[in-house]
């Protein structure tokens, strides 16, 4: 039986993420999910972008690839088409996936490329000093919005659904078992799957917005997130919450099948 230990490059630990950063929890859930599915490490590529979460590839024993900022999905599409038998798991932060790589995201979803996209959303650009991203909630304090972010945020999950993704879900680092379950479903899904994971950044977002240390931030996430079914019944104060759950899980031909059909 495979163990999560087989997927971790222990000799490279401790990792570079700050104390209380949720990225380590996501890495652990990913290794646990791969072990549960018993996918051999040499049949997995972890492709990442730039930023804190982009360093995830340094700590896995699977194949890994780090692309330029925002282009992870473009490179990953190539890897997938050349080696369809290999599971390609893309890890892109909120800035990487939604801002710099926003166009790649919608087109990977539209083509329904058989990739798994994990978006660890820590609500800001952590590595460069806490600037706001398109997924930062309005009114948040960041190093580029000292009076509060004036823009609205968009919902990357709904974006992926309307673009055509086969599987879209959202959870948080607080909900560890749900995260592992969704990861396994997303990895197994044929077609484009996106899992957004809300995760605390105590160093910047938490400090700027007075949300406390790691443990308090996790409690804050738990209070701020409600199950999708309850969210849908709300009228009026939805904006105060994030929903969590499986937004879509549907069957559609993936890009490679269409490509072969066309040829």
């Amino acid at each position: 039986m495979a163990s999560y230990r087989d997927y971790l490059a222990w000799e490279r630990l401790p990792h570079l993420w700050c104390a209380g950063c949720g990225h380590g929890v996501i890495l652990k859930a990913l290794t646990l999910a791969l072990a549960a599915l018993e996918v051999p490490p040499d049949k997995v590529v972890v492709a990442s972008g730039i930023g804190c979460s982009g360093r995830i590839g340094d700590y896995v024993t699977t194949h890994r690839f780090q692309g330029t900022h925002g282009r992870t999905l473009a490179f990953a599409t190539g890897i997938h088409l050349a080696r369809p038998e290999v599971k390609v798991i893309c890890v892109m932060g909120d800035g990487d996936a939604a801002a710099i790589g926003g166009n790649h995201l919608i087109h990977a979803a539209r083509r329904n490329v058989d990739l798994t996209a994990i978006v660890p959303n820590n609500l800001n650009y952590g590595m460069t000093g806490g600037q706001f991203s398109p997924l930062t909630p309005p009114a948040s304090i960041s190093s580029t919005s000292r009076q509060g972010k004036a823009e609205p945020a968009f919902d990357i999950c709904h974006l992926a659904v309307v673009a055509g993704a086969s599987y879209v879900a959202r959870t948080t680092v607080y909900h560890v078992t749900e995260m592992q379950k969704f990861l396994q479903e997303a990895i197994l899904k044929k077609g484009f799957s996106l899992l957004e994971v809300l995760t605390p950044c105590p160093t910047y977002y938490g400090r700027y917005n007075a949300l406390g240390e790691a443990a308090q931030m996790l409690e804050w996430l738990n209070r701020s997130v409600i199950p999708l079914a309850r969210y849908r019944q709300m009228s009026g104060d939805e904006a105060r919450y994030w929903w969590r759950g499986r937004l879509v899980d549907r069957e559609a031909p993936d890009f490679l099948s269409r490509l072969k059909g066309a040829g």
Binding site: L8, W10, L13, P14, H15, W17, A19, G20, C21, G22, H23, G24, V25, K28, A29, V176, T177, A214, L218
Partner: peptide, 10 residues
Amino acid sequence: QLCFYRCPDF
């Protein structure tokens, strides 16, 4: 095992 699952640092 909650401490194991939640620990970000292995």
